[in-house]
């Protein structure tokens, strides 16, 4: 992982070069294009077992593009993505899902004309042979978000924004993910719900789920993250432990709105 930080202005030395064993996910100099536009300019990121890693940055910095490239919705033009050592960058989206990388997409993207319960069933689409496991996952999901249980027969499209975010996360958990990727889970939600969502992320992490979190709410994301990467126009410009980044002057100025 020594080539990891080539393009990185590493103001927090050694942070990114921490323990290299237990690497779940590794992005190695990923370049992703939208047509002729280069959205990711050689991004390298790694996520270790049990971590919360966050990608922060402004609109258009390439945060969501990074997640989509990992999940197979987009494909990198060059560079490699490895899950537990296995190259997954050429895989189709359903194959990546089958490997245990679950993306909870930006804007929640629940199935609006399916009931809450059907949405959860879709989350467990690839676990059809594990009937008992799916059952217990569903019980866990309802424990985690009791609100969803009350509304289990309601159509997803009739839920409030906060409830939809809960559903999207619960649906992701139904797949029993090795790595859960959350794309802007706090977007457009009331502060109380945002609190709840972040509390839930911590709870899930404490249960052993590795999390890659993309957020515009940099302050909150960095507070709960073990490590963070700061993205700017398709490149990693800064990386380090969440708390260090939170206190980094450059980050405070640019992303936390301090002068």
């Amino acid at each position: 992982m020594s080539d990891q930080t080539e393009a990185v202005v590493d103001t927090v030395p050694a942070a990114a070069r921490q323990v290299s064993e237990n690497v779940v996910l590794q992005l190695d100099k990923i370049h992703t294009f939208y047509g002729a536009i280069e959205a990711l300019k050689g991004i390298s990121v790694d996520v270790h077992q049990g971590e919360i890693v966050t990608l922060i940055g402004a609109n258009g910095a390439g945060k969501s593009t990074t997640l989509k490239t990992i999940s197979g919705l987009l494909h990198p033009k060059s560079g490699e993505i490895r899950l537990l050592g296995e190259v997954i960058s050429e895989m189709k989206v359903h194959e990546v899902t089958a490997k245990g990388i679950i993306q909870v997409p930006e804007g929640r993207r629940i199935f609006p004309r399916m009931t809450v319960e059907e949405n959860l069933e879709m989350g467990a689409f690839l676990r059809s042979k594990d009937v008992e496991g799916v059952k217990s996952s569903m019980a866990q999901a309802y424990d985690l978000f009791p609100r969803l249980k009350e509304r289990r027969m309601q159509k997803g499209g009739t839920l409030s924004g906060g409830e939809q975010q809960m559903l999207a996360m619960a649906r992701g958990l139904m797949a029993a993910p090795k790595l859960l990727m959350l794309d802007e889970p706090s977007m457009g939600l009331a502060p109380v719900i945002v609190e709840l969502i972040f509390e839930t992320i911590k709870t899930l992490n404490a249960q052993g789920i590795t999390i890659l979190l993309v957020e515009q709410n940099a302050a909150m994301a960095l507070q709960i993250a073990d490590r963070g990467y700061v993205l700017e126009t398709g490149s990693v410009v800064l990386t380090g432990p969440g708390r260090d980044l939170l206190h980094n002057e450059q980050v405070r100025k640019t992303y936390l709105g301090e002068s």
Binding site: S71, G72, L73, T97, Q103, P105, R109, I110, M114
Partner: peptide, 24 residues
């Protein structure tokens, strides 16, 4: 049915269905 639900899911949101592991 499971496949029938996958069809409905795909018609409501193709990318999201793919993220559930449905082969589009």
């Amino acid at each position: 049915t499971r496949i029938g639900k996958a069809m409905r899911a795909t018609s409501q949101d193709r990318d999201a269905a793919g993220l559930m592991g449905v082969n589009i």
